[in-house]
Simulated scan of single mutants.
Amino acid sequence: MKMFQNLDPELAAALAHLDLPETGARGYSLDELARVRARMAAARRAALVPDPAVTIEDVWVPGPPGEPELRLRVHRPAGEPDGPLPCVYWIHGGGMTLGQPEQDDRVAARFVRELRCVVVSPDYRLAPEHPDPAPVEDCYAGLTWVAAAGPGVDPARIAVGGASAGACLAAGVTLLSRDRRGPSPVFQALSSPMLDDRAGTPSMTQYEDVLVIDRAYIVESWTALLGDRRATGSVGGHAAPARARDLSGLPPALVDVGELEVFRDEAILYAMRLAQAGVPTELQVYPGVFHGSEKLVPDAEITRRAVANRVSALRRAFR
């Protein structure tokens, strides 16, 4: 894929020594998609390094009505916590077709260490085998369990967040919870959010064939989730939050996105609409940054700045 000359210099230097990951499931049959998932899961297991400051437990909780149980990956500070702790309900990315909570173990560990909180990540069902509304309903079921029964969790201090497709689900479950009068998160942290199934913003075409995530993959991901409904009038805000007509009554938000990625404009537009609806909103657009650079180049200065700002925003929300 193409790379732009105005990349952050530190990211550009690092890219020269990196093998970029596969974009996703373009053209894969379900059998091939299963092989990609298995290969990615094996790579994640091989890369896991236990953090002595964090304990991890997988728990099974009720899923949506009539559906299978849901696995939640729960990260806690090691040792005995002092009273109920705040919780980051963090949802993994992967274009709705790939991924597991384990891929964000390092993200969760940093939240646990720096915020002294619990982090819970749902292992939601994936498209295309489980199209909309399965992923967002799974995430909502997990959130309701955490708010009602999460041991050691302060239900008044739950933040919802995620990156890429995980940020889409975080925004969608926040809307769903508002509309159903369910749990009331105190904050939403949306990183490089995938929000609009129509895939028609200027940045979507400006960067449609660059770096890690391109427009073709995004269209296929939304099609896997929505089928023939993609880009039609029958898509609602719980599936594609950019389609939500009313953003009022939502918790404060941090929306951050890279300048050089397809999701830039839909993230900016969503942040603007949140603010216009009276939702306290912080928007960060990081210059020279592309989608996925936070994981590919975690030690870059601009990466450290973005992560530190996210942690700081959550810390303020938990006060």
Rank of each mutant, 00 (worst) to 15 (best):
G237S: 00
P251D: 04
K295Y: 07
A13Y: 05
A149D: 15
R264I: 04
M40L: 13
I213D: 15
R125L: 04
A38Y: 03
A159P: 01
L30G: 13
V112I: 14
R113T: 14
V262Y: 08
I56M: 06
P183F: 01
R273S: 01
L143V: 07
L226E: 12
I56G: 00
L225P: 07
E57K: 00
A127R: 03
D179V: 03
M96T: 09
K295D: 08
A78Q: 11
D104S: 13
L260W: 00
D299F: 12
R37V: 08
L11G: 01
D51M: 07
V262A: 14
G278T: 05
F318C: 13
L296R: 02
R305S: 12
D246A: 01
A42E: 14
R230W: 08
P64E: 09
G182V: 08
E22I: 10
D51P: 08
F290V: 03
V120F: 00
D179K: 04
L20Q: 09
L48M: 09
R245I: 06
Q284F: 10
A165F: 02
G93Q: 09
V173W: 14
D31Q: 12
H238T: 11
R106C: 08
G292M: 12
Q276R: 14
L247T: 11
A43I: 05
V212N: 14
A317S: 03
F318A: 12
D265I: 10
E294M: 09
A156G: 09
L33A: 11
A170L: 12
A41F: 04
P298Y: 03
H291L: 06
L211Y: 00
I56C: 06
D51N: 15
R198N: 11
T303A: 08
D58P: 01
P287N: 03
M204G: 02
A148V: 10
V146S: 04
M1L: 07
W145N: 03
S177E: 03
A148F: 02
P65V: 04
S248P: 11
A216S: 08
H291T: 06
A199Q: 14
C87Y: 05
R116T: 15
T205N: 14
R116H: 10
P84M: 07
